[in-house]
């Protein structure tokens, strides 16, 4: 799966609805700001509809299609007027892009609209590189990082080379690949709460590999995976810190890493 071709005549300054995702909204606003900054750097006008909540994935994956569909309709109402809808998450973008049409296929009022929203929804990094053709990263991060391919982005949306392509442009950054970058970290939404021991073993493997690279920071494009990985790193007392891709790419204003505070960090903050 690779990104589809951009529209024939892309708007000069596209109006982009930023779907921040519920985790970024609650846990890490800085990712939202970083995403908005990147979109603006790539020549977009960014809007953040205030009534946005969640993409509905927790309900959809729990078999609660009625609630998932209700939330999907809500999201469609809110975002369908934009030229593009962009999310700093492969998982949530994948929900809109790959699953809304299925979820609403029997809804005569929404089937077509769901498809239209799906067609213009993108994961942030892919939107920048493949839709905007923009790679003018102006950022510096003179340290070693490793990168975890978040599953939904990788397998539903083909996010693989694009983030690496952008990381290459970050001044001073050294990418050390994981042995198995594309193996699940064990997050899986509610999976990690329903099956904590299994999920724990999976994230432990991931952390082993991260530590083995010797990198100072682990990056990924999905906050769910990152919170899982950061939480395990912390539990194990590892020094490696976790950050969303957008934070590094957006440029100078970089705060403490996930789960670190200016006090607890002592690091790059």
């Amino acid at each position: 799966m690779t990104a589809a071709a951009p529209p024939v005549t892309p708007p000069v300054t596209p109006r982009v609805g930023l779907f921040a995702t519920c985790l970024v909204d609650l846990y890490r606003p800085s990712v939202g700001f970083a995403a908005a900054s990147l979109l603006e750097q790539a020549g977009c006008e960014v809007f953040v509809p205030r009534a946005q909540v969640c993409c509905g994935q927790p309900a959809y994956n729990a078999g609660d299609r009625a609630n998932a569909a209700a939330i999907a309709r809500q999201t469609i109402n809110l975002f369908e007027g934009f030229d593009y809808i962009v999310a700093p998450s492969g998982s949530c973008a994948g929900m809109l892009r790959r699953h809304y049409p299925d979820l609403l296929s029997d809804d005569p009022q929404y089937a077509t609209r769901a498809q239209s929203v799906a067609d213009k929804t993108w994961e942030l990094i892919v939107f920048l590189t493949d839709v905007r053709g923009w790679t003018d990263i102006d950022a510096s991060w003179p340290a070693s990082v490793t990168y975890h391919d978040a599953c939904s982005g990788l397998r539903e949306l083909g996010v693989k080379n694009q983030p690496r392509q952008l990381l290459e442009k970050v001044e001073g950054l050294e990418l050390r690949e994981l042995e198995a970058a594309d193996v699940c970290c064990g997050f899986g939404g509610t999976f990690c709460i329903k099956y904590p021991e299994v999920s724990g073993a999976m994230v432990d493997n991931k952390v082993d590999e991260i530590v083995a690279t010797g990198a100072a920071t682990v990056l990924s494009g999905d906050l769910g995976c990152l919170m899982n990985i950061a939480g395990r790193l912390s539990r194990r007392g590892e020094a490696v810190e976790a950050r969303h891709m957008a934070e590094i790419l957006a440029g100078p204003a970089i705060g403490p890493a996930i789960g670190r505070t200016a006090d607890s960090d002592g690091g790059k903050a």
Binding site: Y27, P29, G32, V48, R50, C192, S199, S234, R235, T261
Partner: peptide, 16 residues
């Protein structure tokens, strides 16, 4: 299996 990273503070929507 893991700690819960504390939120940065404030929701993105409010801050934005």
């Amino acid at each position: 299996a893991r700690d819960l990273p504390a939120p940065e503070g404030g929701t993105f929507i409010d801050l934005w």
